[in-house]
Design a protein around this nucleic acid. Structure first.
Lengths: 213, 213, 213, 213
DNA sequence: CATGAATGAGGTTTCATTCAT
DNA sequence: GATGAATGAAACCTCATTCAT
């Protein structure tokens, strides 16, 4: 008895939705919500423009779907970082490194969030899916900080949410503003060397702050 | 040598340009480069749409003019921070505090830079005016770090550009992403209390990193 | 002679057609021929859109089917009004009252006819079914008028078709134009009181005209 | 000194608006609000499609403008009917005749009102202009009825609003439903003869009702 | 009989830009 | 310098209809 494989291409709801979402993610990330063109998304996806509306409704709804997918994806990956059994200092290193590498390897992430912030997060606020999708990082951080504190390694007044935002900031801003920064500093901020330097610096900053004198 | 007669309508000309720039700054900051409407800018400025083209050319040129003004403004204010005679630790506090407050009081700054980065800084790269407009912060930082090092207060391996970017990051990301962050954390990030906490945290982070054990 | 086996799914077939017709009637009445949406009709009917085409062909054909059903329905009801044995004056009262109440209780009737008239009755003209579906009212009226004339009660120059149109007019226009009329007169034309007044007035008008001085 | 004539065609606000309104009136009357095509209106008017939006906003706003113009036009003409010095019976004749002829000579009137009623008069209800634009007919009728009553010619219980609606009904329905009626009766309702017959019949009906036995 | 996916044509609306005065 | 009218291109979105299963 053979297993029935779902048809590869035509008449396939999930495949069509997926291909549209991928195309939309690219387009929105490159051009922003307003700059993105529905026609372009359809063309990139290789589907009829009408399908976007059939599956996702308005352009804004499609944008929300992209956002939701984007958040789910990073949350999924974050989940895989199990830091419970790792030494506190090493755990912090891994968090920083993960954040940095995730932004580097998923270049759509930053522009999508910037677009959403330009629109005052109106889409996010309407989404029940995302609002409750807290990053597991915060609770991980809390646990790591607590262990570090008990071991007398970490300072005792560090707030996990502030620290989470700080860790994100250090990578995010550097990459989000790479074009203006590199123009003004006339420096390549993304050379292999520069990337290693940045990661090293960020780790120094966070650990310099956290580790007790 | 002939005497240059001042044009009779220089005043009007400058006033018109200024009012247009102010309106354009608001519109671009609120909606982004693509989302901004030429009609809206003209209406906000209370001038005829044709004037925008007369004075600034295309929409992109106007955007560049806005960017240039924006950079000049922050550079001007940065200049006023004279840190030469201030103790190194206090100098760092002031840099952080200035950055934070500047972003808070000039809310157009962040979205404009985000727009420009979405467009890969194409405008900035064409502008001779801005490319050479380095922030005086970097040289200030260099001098402050040196003094701190000589006094045995600061660590010796801190790079001024990395540190500059780090200081900017901590404020910028927090404010740039305030809408998504506050949605996801279900927390008011801009209450008086939250703002004070953030400033304090950022100072701790930077000084915690800089000050030698 | 072969026996015709009833098709096993005739029941389903008829039920489906009926449910579609009901839904289509509502949709066409509410939105007009152009404003009605095929998707909406299918959704209202709870059947797959494809079924509409399967059973009725094009949208226009469906509209014609609705029209035919609509005419048949009113003709059926008109048939039940047996006025042969009723006194002429009372017969006229009943005709007016029936017309008025039919329009009130079948609010789809007026908008459907208005739609068809907007389209110059192209559907009706193609329909063999309806073209010959004369209202029995006209012949009833003829008979009633004749009796009234013979009894010396009614004027002798009344034309039955004119009178039929007149009786329809008085109710039809009032209800068809209720929204504009009530807006302009700032008056509720459909309160219980207003409805009674209208019926009474219409009866007075027709009988005032008919009954010989 | 010559008088400056406004430019005949281009760059002329009023002329453009007028030509658009005329075209829109025709298109809306022929096809209804939904059936009318913005492109068609622009083409009929010989202007760029963009102009419709420039002057009137959305399609619905344009429809309202058409409605307003339509009401103003009939109200203007109604004003010219001065019935104060005319004998009551003759006054009623003139009212009926005016109504009939107005509908005949302004064939856009009926379909436009039908469209508006299909949409539950939503446009009219938003228009401050029209809501207060009462027909002078009602007060004229009131005065005529009063004189007729005092002369002992007219019945004493006739309500002017009911009568106004009745007079309108008799012409309106006949013309509004001419296509379905003529199809079903297989009769030309608009021949010269038929038109004369209808006017004569309507007059008989109204006067038959009004004139005291 | 029945269904959900798919489509092409065309609808309304918007936009940056230019023209005529 | 200044203005309001005008435009073409293109954007978003909708619709009746058909296809593949």
């Amino acid at each position: 008895m053979t297993i029935l494989k779902p048809k590869p291409n035509t008449r396939n709801r999930d495949a069509s939705k997926e291909v549209i979402l991928v195309a939309a993610t690219e387009e929105f990330a490159e051009k922003g919500l307003q700059g993105a063109r529905v026609d372009q998304i359809a063309e990139r996806a290789g589907v009829n423009k009408r399908m976007l509306y059939y599956y996702f409704g308005q352009k804004d709804d499609l944008f929300l779907a992209v956002l939701e997918r984007t958040y789910e994806k990073i949350r999924d990956e974050e989940q895989t970082l199990n830091l419970v059994e790792v030494e506190p200092v090493e755990a912090i290193r891994r968090l920083i490194s993960f954040t940095w590498n995730y932004y580097l390897q998923n270049p759509e992430f930053i522009p999508l969030l910037n677009s959403e912030n330009l629109h005052k997060a109106v889409h996010l606020k309407e989404s029940k899916k995302i609002r409750s999708l807290h990053s597991p990082f915060v609770s991980m951080l809390e646990e790591v900080l607590e262990r570090g504190r008990q071991q007398g390694v970490f300072r005792s007044d560090a707030d996990p949410v502030q620290l989470y935002i700080t860790i994100a900031s250090l990578s995010y801003f550097y990459l989000s503003n790479k074009h203006t920064l590199s123009t003004i500093f006339a420096r390549d901020l993304l050379s292999q060397r520069a990337r290693a330097d940045r990661l090293s610096h960020m780790t120094d900053v966070v650990l310099g702050y956290l580790i007790q004198a």
